[in-house]
Amino acid sequence: MSRTRFAPDRGLTTRMLITMFLIGLLFVAFVGLLLVALRGAWPIVVILAGGLFVAQFWFSDKIAAFSMGAREVSPQEYPELHGTIDRLCALADMPKPRVAVADTDMPNAFATGRNEKNAVVCVTTGLMRRLEPEELEGVLAHELSHVAHRDVAVMTIAGFLGVLAGIITRVGLQFGMFGGFNDRDNRDNDNTAVAAIVVIAVSAIVYAISFLLTRLLSRYRELSADRSAALLTGRPSALASALTKVTGDIAAIPTQDLRKAQPYNAFYFAPALSAREVAANAFSTHPSLEQRLEQLGKISAELGKS
């Protein structure tokens, strides 16, 4: 993490290190198995893994912004939005990211980009229309915390193995692992089929494990961003109010619009789900509203004592 005035979070750092270490072990074992099982096809493994990683890591900001219909805006277009981000960046002693707006009624915000130089903080028009200035400040501080902690880069790297494993599983099931099930010599066919089945099975297991690890890390990073934002602004109650408003209003969004937004839940300030769905989903990218409000209540009490 770069030097900023966001409150350090040792718990976040520890969980990041543990998760990245475990995913790193999985990645080494998984790629090793692919190289052994596919033998002559190892160049495909290297190209596939390398290409996916570069695309996901290097262009994550552009892909996310394009997918969500966000456009970069100038201070002249949105002076209050830029002014709030300017103040928060000065308070946190961090570089100012690019600022974008998505024209949608979905009340939400997200941060993306592999580092501070490429970071983008985006808010929707629906969010700005619903929140009071101090509530919006809390949401923006939350997103800037993600930038300062490099959460987007960490989660992109952490989620890469799951993406790779999922793709290999689907390719293996649909196409017989790069044509390995085509009729050739029976003995070669049998060996290839066994190797393909092993790779598909291991890919599925690796995908499941990495999925659980990254979701666990994602939920904690959201709690950490809430904590950092509340301490930076000194107004945890404003962030709590924003969370309550956003979560409640998201539940009122038409189901069709929610489903379109759900693939990007990991990026959002609040997921495109009702509060009940988040609480009932053990695999959610975000902690429940109750967990987030409880933490903010404790921070408010601590600040009141100091």
Rank of each mutant, 00 (worst) to 15 (best):
Glu222Asp: 14
Ala204Phe: 14
Asp249His: 11
Ala242Thr: 06
Gln256Gly: 01
Gln262Thr: 13
Ala193Ile: 07
Ala225Trp: 04
Lys260His: 14
Thr247Lys: 02
Val199Thr: 15
Thr244Phe: 01
Thr255Phe: 04
Tyr268His: 06
Tyr220Val: 07
Ala196Thr: 14
Thr247Pro: 00
Ala208Met: 15
Ala270Gln: 10
Ala208Val: 15
Ala201Trp: 03
Ala204Leu: 15
Gln262Phe: 03
Thr214Phe: 09
Ala195Asp: 13
Ile205Leu: 15
Gly248Met: 10
Ala272Arg: 05
Ser224Met: 05
Arg227Tyr: 02
Thr214Ser: 13
Gln256Thr: 03
Arg215Trp: 00
Ala261Lys: 10
Gln262Met: 09
Ser241Leu: 00
Leu258Trp: 02
Ser237Cys: 00
Ala204Gln: 13
Leu231Pro: 01
Gln262Leu: 05
Phe269Ala: 00
Lys245Leu: 10
Ala252Val: 03
Val206Trp: 09
Val246Thr: 11
Ala238His: 00
Phe211Asn: 15
Pro236Thr: 06
Pro263Phe: 03
Thr233His: 08
Ala201Ile: 11
Ala266Gln: 07
Ala252Ile: 00
Leu223Gly: 12
Asp226Gly: 11
Val206His: 09
Ala229Gly: 11
Ala238Asp: 01
Ala251Leu: 04
Ile253Cys: 07
Val246Ser: 02
Ser228Ile: 02
Leu243Gln: 12
Leu223Gln: 11
Ala238Met: 03
Ala272Ile: 04
Leu217Thr: 00
Lys260Asp: 10
Ala266Thr: 01
Val202Lys: 05
Tyr220Leu: 13
Leu216Pro: 00
Leu231Cys: 06
Val199Phe: 06
Val198Tyr: 06
Leu273Tyr: 07
Ile250Gln: 03
Asp226Tyr: 10
Ser237Ile: 01
Ile209Asp: 00
Gln256Ser: 03
Ala252His: 06
Val202Pro: 09
Arg219Ile: 04
Ser203Gln: 08
Thr247Phe: 09
Val194Cys: 02
Arg235Tyr: 03
Glu222Asn: 15
Val202His: 11
Val199Glu: 10
Gly234His: 12
Ser210Trp: 01
Leu231Asp: 04
Ile250Gly: 04
Ala251Asp: 08
Arg235Gln: 08
Ile253Gly: 10
Ile205Tyr: 08
Ala270Gly: 02
Ala225Cys: 08
Ala266Ser: 11
Ser218Met: 12
Glu222Val: 09
Ala208Arg: 14
Ala195Leu: 08
Ala252Thr: 05
Pro254Glu: 04
Arg219Val: 05
Gly234Thr: 12
Ala270Leu: 00
Val194Arg: 13
Asp226Lys: 11
Val202Asp: 09
Leu231Glu: 06
Pro263Leu: 07
Gly234Ser: 14
Lys260Leu: 14
Pro263Thr: 06
Ile253Ser: 09
Ala272Asp: 05
Val198Trp: 10
Ala266Arg: 06
Ile209Tyr: 01
Phe211Ser: 15
Leu243Thr: 09
Ala193Thr: 14
Gln256Met: 00
Ala196Val: 10
Phe269Thr: 03
Pro271Lys: 02
